[in-house]
Every structure is written in structure tokens, then in C-alpha cells.
């Protein structure tokens, strides 16, 4: 009898959690503005801000925003410069990571100013800890200077992601009509 109740409770709990996870999948969370220095300064000028003593950890290594990032993420950003770099965190044991990788690779290829890097953190859990990431795939969008724009957990939705990144991408990247060079993202 107890077993039957346990089975029932478990089934209900699993359905509730499953629905919650499904609704969260691919949802975009905008990051807090303080981690993104060029939101206030405007595009182009952010890299010129000197790393003055406002609590920066480690100096000389890129911009102040980049200094707080794990080394592997910094390396990923240090490659060919793009307006926005999507850093995807994956593990070997993660089936949706493969879907996310295929989708993001495709999106980045078709979008000017957008780059995609897939970091396999199976053997480097420290990165997940430093970035506060609990599940894979999690994709974090960084500006050129290392400021965090947004995060997506699960497999992203192509259109939603592009719409959220649009203010950050060169206007001719997509066939978008509204060029927004003011720099603050539209809510």
C-alpha cells in the first residue's frame, strides 16, 4: 500500500518537474548589466577603459570583464574577434548538447559578427563552478570585451536567440531593418 502511494507521488512529481524543465528549456536569461561594461559606455569605447582599481581580479590579461572569467573561456574569446561569442558548455554525457551544437554552429555560420565555441567541460568541472552553471548545455553570450550578455540553458530556440542578440550584432548581419546602434538592448 505504501509502495503504491510512493509510486503515485513519484509519478506526479516527475510530471511536474518534467513540465517545468520543458518550459525552461531554451529560455533566455538576460545577464545583469554590471557584468557588461560597454552597456553604459556605448559600443567601441569599452575596450579603452583602463583597468583601474575598481576591484578587478588579475590585471594585464585582456579587459577588466575578461579578467574574471575562467582561463579556458578567455582563450575562447581571444580567438578571432567577433561582436558576440556564444560559449557553449557541454559534456560527453549530454545528448541535447549535440543538438545545441549543431544548431548554434549553423546560426553562427549564417550570422555576421556571431561566433560559436563549444567547450567540453567533462573533465574541467571547475569552469562550470566558476560560471555558476549547473546543467549542460548552457550557452553564454559574451561581448568582444568579455561582458556577459545572456545565458540559455538547454537547446536554444534559433529565432528567440537571434532576436535577443540582435542589438549587439552588426545591422547588416541579418536582413534586419531596424538598425540599433544606440547600444542598449531593447527589453
Amino acid at each position: 500500500m505504501t509502495g503504491l502511494i510512493v509510486a503515485g507521488v513519484t509519478l506526479v512529481a516527475a510530471v511536474i518537474v518534467g513540465l517545468a524543465l520543458r518550459s525552461r528549456n531554451g529560455r533566455i536569461r538576460m545577464s545583469a548589466p554590471p557584468s557588461e561594461p560597454d552597456a553604459a559606455a556605448g559600443p567601441g569605447s569599452s575596450a579603452a577603459i583602463p583597468a583601474s582599481g575598481d576591484g578587478d581580479r588579475g590585471s594585464g590579461d585582456g579587459t577588466p570583464a575578461q579578467a574574471g572569467l575562467p582561463a579556458d573561456v578567455r582563450d575562447a574569446l581571444a580567438g578571432e574577434a567577433a561582436d558576440v561569442t556564444l560559449v557553449q558548455l557541454s559534456t560527453t554525457f549530454c545528448a541535447p548538447c549535440r543538438q545545441a551544437r549543431a544548431l548554434l554552429t549553423h546560426v553562427a555560420e549564417g550570422t555576421e559578427g556571431l561566433r560559436h565555441v563549444d567547450l567540453d567541460i567533462t573533465d574541467r568541472p571547475g569552469i562550470a563552478r566558476d560560471l555558476g552553471v549547473l546543467r549542460t548545455p548552457t550557452t553564454i553570450a559574451y561581448t568582444r570585451s568579455g561582458g556577459e550578455l545572456l545565458r540559455v540553458s538547454g537547446v536554444p530556440d534559433r529565432e528567440t536567440l537571434l532576436a535577443a542578440l540582435e542589438p549587439r550584432l552588426p545591422a547588416d548581419g541579418r536582413s534586419a531593418a531596424d538598425r540599433s546602434d544606440v547600444g542598449h538592448p531593447t527589453e
Binding site: 518534467g18 524543465l21 520543458r22 554525457f93 549530454c94 567541460i121 562550470a128 549547473l134
Partner: peptide, 11 residues
Amino acid sequence: FGFCLGCEMYL
């Protein structure tokens, strides 16, 4: 849901 809890829990 096609959701692999064990895989997600890996981290």
C-alpha cells in the same frame, strides 16, 4: 519528456 536526468546530473 525525453529528458535524461542522469546526463544532466553529470555536472
